[in-house]
Structures are given as C-alpha cells and as structure tokens.
C-alpha cells in the first residue's frame, strides 16, 4: 500500500517535469526526425520525401565542411582547455584567502560575459588595423593578419577566444575536484617521499581523473554544438568555409527556409553527439579504472 502511495507521490512530483520534457523535448525531437523525411519549409507541412534529404546529406560538400570545422573546433578547444584549466586550478589552489578569490574571479569573469561581449572584445583586440594584439600577430606571421577573415586562422582564433571565455568554468570544476582530495592524502604521499611531480602523477592526477573526464565530456558536447561564437565571428564573412554544424542548420532553417533538410542535418548532429559522447565516456571510464 505504501509502495503504491510512494509511486503515486513520485508520479505527481515528476509530472510537471515529464510534461515539460515531453512537450519541449521529446515531441520536437520526434517531429524533427519526421521533418527530416519531408521536403518542407520551416513552417508548414511540405511533402513526403522519403530518404531524399539523407541522400543529399551524403553528397553535401557544405555538410562535410561544417562537420570538419566542428570536429576541428572541438579538437582545438577541449584538450587545450582541459589542460589549461587543470594547470590554472592547481595554481589557484595554492593561493589563499582573498587572493585566491580575486584570481578565481579573474578567470571566471569571462565565463559570465555574454558571448556577444566576448566577441566584441576579441574582435577589437585582433582588429587588423587597430587591434592591440596585432603587433604580436605581426611578429609571428610577419604581417598583420585578419584572423577571422582568413580561413586557416579562423578556427584556431575562435578556439582561442572560446578557451579564454570558458576556461573559468572548468577551473572551478577542477578546483572543486582538487579540494575533494583530502589534504592528508597529499601529505601522506609527501611523507612517503613524493616530490611535486610524483605527487601529481601518482596521487593528484589519478584522483582528479573523474573530474577531468567530466570536464572533457561537458566540453565535447557543448563544443560539438558550437554556434554563437562561430556565428558572430564569421558573420558577414566566409561562412561556407568556416561554419559549424549547428550554424549550418540555422542557415538552412532560418535563412533558406529549408526546414526538411535542416532537420536532416540536425538529426545528423544528434547522432554525432550521441556517438562521440558514448565513445568518449567509455574511453575515459576505461582509463579511469
């Protein structure tokens, strides 16, 4: 009897969530898959197209470029950001009191900035004519480079800005992870004869591994879905060569009113994210053991 009542209470408590989840996620997702099988505008039913959209996807050069760009972006951001966040977190963890709070705030502040502000800041810093960072670019490249209008430097540039803007959050996760390692465990290792490097290799790193896996997974998923920052930087520029997958969906759906094919690309993204996430999760888990 109690069991049944428990179930009833659980159901009542979960109902609002389930309802919203169903209406705002499950239904649109199913509808998206259905839409991908139609030749349809963004609004309106259109007509049945079978697998035509998927055939088109297989031969779509822009889809290939967008996929390549997206994977390149993930490859540029996720590992670099994770390593940097861990290094910063280990630095921050050594600080105490207000200094730690201040330094942490410095790293976290960019994360709180709206993406549009991040875009404006770096767009200006790297401006070809007035950018204060252009002397550095010129020193490396030999001349001023329009970072966000040169196809080869676009993704590295956007990846750099993304890492700058989002590393604070990962630092926070790592810091929480580092704090969850009892001080006594590190002390025991020091007494056992571990120097800084041995301490990191044998104690800190293995114990922080679950956080590392989490940080990598969060970044993989969020960066596979990258849109806003790429959109802002290639806005009115060479979008074809530099766009991400989600941006391609945006363009197809909202600029070309090609709802059916946009849904097809969206399904492809869904599959890509799911497959890569599961793969990465398995990989990270096996390494963690």
């Amino acid at each position: 009897m109690t069991r049944r009542r428990d179930m009833a209470v659980a159901f009542i408590l979960l109902l609002p969530f389930l309802a919203i989840y169903g209406v705002a996620f499950v239904y649109p997702t199913i509808d998206m898959v259905v839409l991908s099988l139609r030749k349809a505008p963004l609004i309106g039913a259109g007509e049945w197209a079978g697998l035509d959209n998927y055939v088109r996807l297989a031969g779509d050069r822009l889809f290939r470029i967008a996929t390549r760009n997206t994977l390149w972006f993930v490859a540029l951001t996720a590992p670099a950001s994770t390593v940097l966040a861990l290094l910063l977190a280990m630095g921050v963890a050594r600080l105490r009191g207000w200094l730690q709070a201040a330094v942490l705030a410095c790293f976290f502040l960019p994360f709180m900035l709206p993406v549009s502000v991040v875009y404006l800041i770096w767009h200006w810093i790297l401006d070809t004519h007035f950018g204060i960072a252009q002397p550095i670019v010129a020193a490396v490249a030999g001349r001023s480079v329009s970072i966000f209008r040169t196809v080869s430097t676009f993704m590295p540039g956007v990846a750099f800005v993304t890492v700058w803007a989002t590393v604070g959050f990962s630092v926070l996760l790592f810091l929480a992870g580092l704090r969850s390692i009892p001080q006594e465990t590190s002390e025991a290792a020091r007494l056992d004869g571990a120097g800084r490097i041995a301490l990191f290799r044998h104690v800190t790193w293995p114990l922080i591994w679950p956080v590392t896996a989490l940080v990598l997974t969060i970044q993989l998923i969020s960066h596979l879905k990258v849109f806003d920052i790429v959109y802002l930087f290639n806005l009115r520029g060479r979008v074809d060569e530099t766009m991400s997958l989600v941006q391609y969906v945006f363009r197809l759906a909202f600029q070309q009113n090609d709802g059916g094919y946009a849904a097809t690309v969206a399904v492809a993204i869904l599959v890509l994210v799911a497959v890569l996430s599961v793969l990465q999760f398995q990989l990270l888990r096996s390494r963690g053991q």
């Binding site: 006594e184 465990t185 025991a188 020091r190 007494l191 571990a194 104690v203 293995p206 114990l207």
Partner: peptide, 20 residues
C-alpha cells in the same frame, strides 16, 4: 628539510590511504 627527506612515517587520523 622537506617532508620527504625526514625519514618519518606518519599515521593520520583519517588514515589518508590512497583511494585509487
């Protein structure tokens, strides 16, 4: 002298075993 060079072993209240 750093801790690792003092030739001292310590048993902590929390035991501080390496969980991994």
């Amino acid at each position: 002298l750093p801790a690792k060079d003092r030739d001292i072993a310590m048993v902590f209240q929390s035991y501080a075993l390496y969980p991994h």
